[in-house]
Design a binder for these strands. Structure first.
Length: 263
DNA sequence: AACACGTGCAACCGCATGGAA
DNA sequence: ATTCCATGCGGTTGCACGTGT
């Protein structure tokens, strides 16, 4: 495969963009759009490579970009999503309208990573230093510290596994311990328990909104779907348990006890 | 005032991915 | 099936600016 020559070797400009270059790019895209980034700079009369133009547009010039400092809510959201997604900045940015992956990455490295280090009892602060800690622990940290840890892909592991036969008689109810149980007979017609599902669970905890899932309002800090959920692969549902407003875990039911697939 | 150092952020680099040929 | 190309992504760099000495 032949790599395209870098900007410098082509006599193209690098480094910070000038106001004039910005105006040319904005004007061109307003007139013609940006169908082909590689061809754009030549057509627009810019001495830049297409990659540089795309980056400048997506990270800075795009009209829907929200400028200014991140709000506390936005920072909290980033921290929670990072707990689920890891360094997948574009995935995090997709859930923060007006913010770019580059911007979120910068905020994480310059502010939030330090803040996370102040949260006691987490993998980021195992010694439990409480100095400077004000807000409640993250839900992800509750899961991590109370029961288990995330896998290499940032997904919650399922624990423990049960076979479908074990839950054939369970009904969808909540009890005094706020357990939500499956109705095994209703396991068709369910949304996939995929990555977006888990993100919605965490976003619900963050915002108090439960997305498309029917919810049981918990008077502690968590809302969760009351309906059974079907996972991708060989998993058929989950059982989310909250006790004393602190402990949280879930079980994933499968036909054969194998670890289900999450896509 | 001058310098050193730290911080924040825009931009770059190289690799991955997906689609077209 | 393979190659080529455009684009997207995450890690990293480098510079401007602020602050401390």
């Amino acid at each position: 495969m032949v790599r395209s020559p870098c900007c410098e070797k082509m006599g193209l400009k690098k480094g910070p963009w000038t106001r004039e270059e910005d105006e040319i790019l904005i004007h061109y895209i307003a007139l013609y759009g940006h169908g082909n980034w590689r061809a754009l700079p030549k057509q627009a009369g810019l001495l830049r490579c297409g990659k540089s133009c795309r980056l400048r547009w997506t990270n800075y010039l795009r009209p829907d970009i929200k400028r200014g400092d991140f709000s506390k809510d936005e920072e909290d959201t980033i921290m929670r999503l990072h707990g689920v997604l890891g360094n997948r900045w574009s995935a995090i940015a997709a859930r923060l309208p007006g913010r770019t992956d580059n911007e979120i990455k910068n905020v994480w490295h310059t502010h939030l990573k330090k803040r996370l280090n102040q949260i006691p009892g987490t993998k980021h602060n195992p010694t439990g230093d409480t100095s400077g800690f004000e807000s409640k622990p993250l839900l992800t940290d509750l899961v991590t510290t109370k029961h288990t840890s995330f896998d290499d892909h940032g997904y919650l592991p399922s624990s423990p596994q049960r076979s479908l036969s074990e839950i054939s008689s369970v009904t969808a109810t909540t009890d005094n311990n706020r357990n939500v149980c499956m109705n095994a007979a209703a396991l068709d017609n369910l949304p996939a328990m995929d990555e977006n599902f888990w993100l919605d669970v965490f976003m619900a905890e963050n915002s108090g909104v439960t997305s498309d899932f029917p919810a049981v309002h918990d008077d502690h800090h968590l809302q969760f779907p009351a309906s059974p959920i079907r996972a991708v692969g060989n998993a058929y549902g989950y059982n989310l348990n909250v006790r004393d407003g602190m402990d949280l875990w879930y079980d994933v039911f499968t036909r054969n006890g194998d670890i289900p697939e999450f896509v």
